[in-house]
Design a protein around this nucleic acid. Sequence first.
DNA 1: ACCTGAACACCGTTCAAGT
DNA 2: ACCTGAACACCGTTCAAGT
Lengths: 182, 182
Amino acid sequence: MRADARRNRDLIVESAREVFREQGYNASLDLVAKRAGVGAGTLYRHFPSREDLVNAVMQVWVDRVEEATEKVLAFEGPPRELLDQWLMTYAELISLHKGGPAKITAAMVQPDSPIAPKCKVLRDATSRVTDRLHEEGVLREGITAEDVCRLVGGVATVADGAEQPVSEIEPLLKVLAAGMAR
Amino acid sequence: MRADARRNRDLIVESAREVFREQGYNASLDLVAKRAGVGAGTLYRHFPSREDLVNAVMQVWVDRVEEATEKVLAFEGPPRELLDQWLMTYAELISLHKGGPAKITAAMVQPDSPIAPKCKVLRDATSRVTDRLHEEGVLREGITAEDVCRLVGGVATVADGAEQPVSEIEPLLKVLAAGMAR
DNA sequence: ACCTGAACACCGTTCAAGT
DNA sequence: ACCTGAACACCGTTCAAGT
């Protein structure tokens, strides 16, 4: 890739990160291009779809997911509490940007989505947690990582759409945890 | 209201019902006006916002909600099954149109929404069910009708966004029911 | 009092012309 | 090979002119 192309690409991603943080994942791409100081065509050349751009922005998010996963898995207390912790952590991770819960949860079931690789990281992390919880015998049989993703994703999507802070869904996550535990 | 205005209003609602059924609640309003054979301005005169139009279309939906409520409340079997039945019924009722789960569930927490009156009918119906279940002692303390609406609404929203038929979320609704029951 | 439809704004997307 | 920005399409929304 030519040096100026590389540089423009980076400018666009940086600008998108900023705009998405302020306005959410459905913000105007025109604004992203303007702030990056590039023409609209340049943005589309690098990122044919919005999802491709979101995927690039989510690159650093992967680190946060892995960090949070290690932290939760290192928890030494009762496994039942570990479940609660993961649900809250999961909800927070997908709610960092407005529009995140809906986009991430939808892509979770659509393997051809450009952001599928990022979703896979989160789903794999969830698998590690559910595997552990199944070993410990705290989860009901048949509860899969996908189930967790869709349940927590659903509740977080509703809160996000209603402009409610993610902290307010804690009671609902408790209900989910109770439903998944034996 | 003048006779021609009345007639145009009815044409718009009828057209909207058709278009929303085919394309969901976020379909183009321009198409609605075209099919109704009226100018765009006429549509906006009668319905200043999309939500106002959705509210008008949902008028007949109220009957379905009340009908379904009576049917579920008439159920004579174990109360725990009544819970399952209501969750499934609820999910079906809000999933009749694409975009319904998100719109109805969001409005459930926004009392100033034009479709709030319609949401109230569904919330009240849910209250009747939860009251009954609390009396029977099958629901955990603190579970409110609002909780039910947000939990089922969330799961249904995810399925709707992923273009999945509502029937596929039944296992997730079982998890919710287990979490809400004692 | 109500309706029409052109006009405007906004945004996503493409592409001919330029470097 | 890459970039620019005008141009097009689409849609929501308004409003002057008409009945």
